[in-house]
């Protein structure tokens, strides 16, 4: 592969990719998928939501970024709980072989369970939609943090621990000054993956509970047969997820340097 690079390829090439997909979309809606709104129709109908993104016209009729904001807050709550539980759990799993052996099977069984399966359980437990959604987000997004933290703890070179031993660092100091910084790059990879999942889960959670947010809006517009808004929501969800991942990636990259 000897591809030539040119000036501005980083912006031109992705743009061409987007154009290609939009063209494909337009062709599809004209041919085999008549129910699929065309790109320009979608743009037209979405305009009020995009142009006044923070406007609130009614409970289920708000600017798209306002909906996004609700979703983000819900995600933040669930994600925070996931990290607060997942990180220490990962540490313990990484440090104690016995603990790992005891709980690894159960983690492997819980990990692949879909949010759609957890949510009803959350509703049964909490009776309300918001705590149920938070419960689902936390439970689904926790695992990458748990597993990556555990891997990171196991990967700490013996040399670092020897330094701590020679210096007679207390357990607390060893944790804060050696274990934590040494695991941080791994932990953060877990954090990033967890955030991705949390964002994935929010839509499902909102759809099932009907709470206001991008996911709730999407479901409502499907029921109101405004298909253009479904596409608007999909694009919004994707873009926000992408931005979140990039932001986490930036921090992660800075931490990787310390890993070398």
């Amino acid at each position: 592969m000897n591809e030539r690079k040119f000036r501005g390829d980083w912006i031109v090439l992705p743009f061409l990719g987007i154009v290609a997909v939009v063209v494909l979309w337009a062709i599809s809606s004209k041919t085999w998928a008549p129910n699929l709104p065309t790109p320009w129709k979608t743009w037209e109908v979405s305009q009020p939501y995009l142009m006044k993104p923070f406007e609130k016209r009614g409970e289920l009729d708000q600017g798209i970024l306002r909906f996004t904001w609700y979703s983000l807050i819900l995600v933040a709550k669930g994600y925070t709980i996931a990290l607060l539980i997942g990180t220490p759990l990962g540490f313990v799993l990484g440090m104690s072989k016995m603990f790992a052996k005891t709980f690894d099977p159960i983690i492997q069984i819980l990990r692949p369970v879909s949010p759609l399966a957890w949510l009803p359980l959350g509703l049964v437990l909490f009776q309300k939609s918001e705590p149920a959604a938070i419960f689902t987000i936390a439970l689904c997004s926790m695992w990458p943090t748990v597993l990556n933290t555990a891997v990171g703890v196991r990967a700490i070179p013996q040399d670092y621990l020897n330094v701590a031993r020679v210096l007679n660092l207390s357990r607390m100091k060893t944790l804060l000054k050696i274990l934590l910084p040494a695991t941080l790059p791994y932990m953060f990879t877990g954090f990033r993956l967890s955030l991705g999942i949390a964002w994935l889960v929010i839509v499902a959670a909102e759809m099932l509970t009907g709470s206001p947010g991008v996911g709730g809006f999407l479901w409502q517009e499907y029921n109101s047969l405004i298909y253009e808004h479904i596409i608007l929501c999909i694009v919004t969800i994707g873009v926000i997820g992408f931005i979140l991942d990039r932001l986490m990636g930036l921090v992660e990259r800075r931490l990787q340097v310390a890993k070398a």
Binding site: D159, Y160, N162, V163, R165, V166, L167, N168, I178, P181, A182, L184, A258, K259, A260
Partner: peptide, 20 residues
């Protein structure tokens, strides 16, 4: 019976902490 700062060791592989 265990390590102690009384015996200062220069590790062959340096053992520096990469984040410091």
């Amino acid at each position: 019976t265990g390590p102690s700062p009384e015996r200062g060791l220069v590790f062959q592989n340096y053992s520096l902490l990469p984040w410091l």
